Amino acid sequence: MNNKVFFNNKICDAEDAKVSVFDRGYLFSDGVYELIPYFKKKPFLQDEHYHRLKQSLEMIGLKNPFEKEVWLEKIEKLIDLCEFDNFSLYIQVTRGVPKKLDDGVLREHAATKKYNPSVCMFCSQIQDLSKNSPKLKNAITMEDKRWLQCDVKSISLLFNAYAKTLANEKNAYEAILIRNGVVTEGCSSNVFIVKDEIIKTAPKSNLILPGVTRSFVINELIKKNKYLIQVDNYSEEDLLNADEVFITNSTQAILPIKKINNKIINNGGTGDITNKLYKNFLEFLE
């Protein structure tokens, strides 16, 4: 398999991709990322993902390295070399490496110097959703111990990775995070519940990432079906007593949750509303 990586205006084999140890992304997680799914080689909601990347860069005071047209040109060059039909495009931008390393100060918290930003992109294969029914998943709950700027798509994912690893060890796909008794989101997903045919999900705030698929499900699929939705805070008790629970993310769209901790949801099956939304999602991709 001939995987390619775009790094600072050059495309190389994955085995040859290297980053400086003095990159602020490596030293301080000083950067942001974005992930764009491609289904049958077509990008899904590319403009919305680009807008979120641009917004994340602005929120950490990092200049966008390219205009949108240039981004699209560079993405296209990499995508042309991708061997997959269904894949995710990972984009990462860090503040980069100091332009001068001769002052004896190789690491400092404050970004006081002039830097060459680092831009990295690569593709990872994902499943063809059109060939699959919605996959039932297990989840656990954990206290949300992340920082208070979760609406930035930061590359600092230490707690997310830790919680996701704990979930995996407990035979669960996702860790659903709880802050002060209120459900925020999953480590890599947004969370929806259904109770008495009313859908609920957490509102946009600094405590959750504004998921692109989340917005699509709310503004397109739920609206199309005229389902009732409440975008408001809800408790862990509401989560565990829901009729249906599903999560959304960019690469797997909509995933029904069959068990949370030791609590079985919807008798371990996919709920009617979740199933309908998933089918609508596949129809949109056709």
Rank of each mutant, 00 (worst) to 15 (best):
I91G: 05
G61Y: 15
E76C: 04
C120Q: 08
N64C: 14
E69W: 05
K113T: 06
I79A: 12
A111L: 13
Q149M: 08
E76N: 13
N138V: 04
Y173L: 13
E108Q: 13
M142Q: 06
L53T: 03
K74H: 06
I75V: 08
S133F: 07
K170Q: 15
H51Y: 09
S130A: 12
D102F: 06
D102N: 11
K63D: 15
K114Q: 11
H49A: 09
M59K: 15
I75W: 04
I155F: 07
E58W: 14
L129R: 04
W71Y: 15
K40Q: 13
K113P: 10
L158W: 08
A161T: 14
E108R: 09
F159G: 00
K42L: 12
I75K: 02
S56F: 15
S154L: 11
S88R: 02
S130F: 05
P134G: 02
Q125D: 01
K40G: 04
E58F: 15
D80N: 15
N160W: 11
N116Q: 14
D102R: 00
G96V: 00
D102E: 06
H51P: 00
K131R: 06
K113H: 13
H49I: 03
P65V: 07
G61C: 14
V152Y: 11
D80P: 00
L136Y: 00
S118A: 13
M121A: 03
S118Q: 04
N171I: 01
A172M: 09
L53H: 13
N160T: 04
L101N: 02
I79Q: 12
V105R: 12
D85P: 04
I140E: 01
H49Y: 14
N168D: 08
K68Q: 05
E169A: 09
L81V: 08
A161M: 13
A167F: 14
D85C: 09
E76I: 00
F122T: 01
V119H: 10
E58T: 07
M121C: 06
K99L: 08
P43C: 12
Y173W: 14
K40W: 01
K164P: 12
D47V: 01
D144G: 09
F122I: 02
Q55W: 15
K145P: 00
L45G: 06
P134F: 04
V70R: 05
L78G: 10
K131G: 00
K153I: 09
A161N: 13
L81Y: 12
K54N: 13
A163W: 08
Q125P: 00
K135V: 14
P98D: 01
C120G: 10
S130D: 02
D151N: 15
L177Y: 05
I91M: 13
N132Q: 10
M142N: 02
E73K: 03
P65F: 11
K77L: 05
I79M: 14
I79C: 14
K114T: 10
Q92C: 11
I176A: 10
P117A: 05
D85G: 10
A111V: 07
S88C: 05
H51L: 13
L101F: 07
F39S: 08
K54A: 03
C123A: 09
Q92M: 12
N160G: 11
A167T: 10
F66A: 03
I140D: 03
S130T: 12
A139V: 09
L62M: 10
E69S: 14
L101P: 00
F122P: 07
L166H: 04
V152K: 10
E174T: 05
S88Y: 02
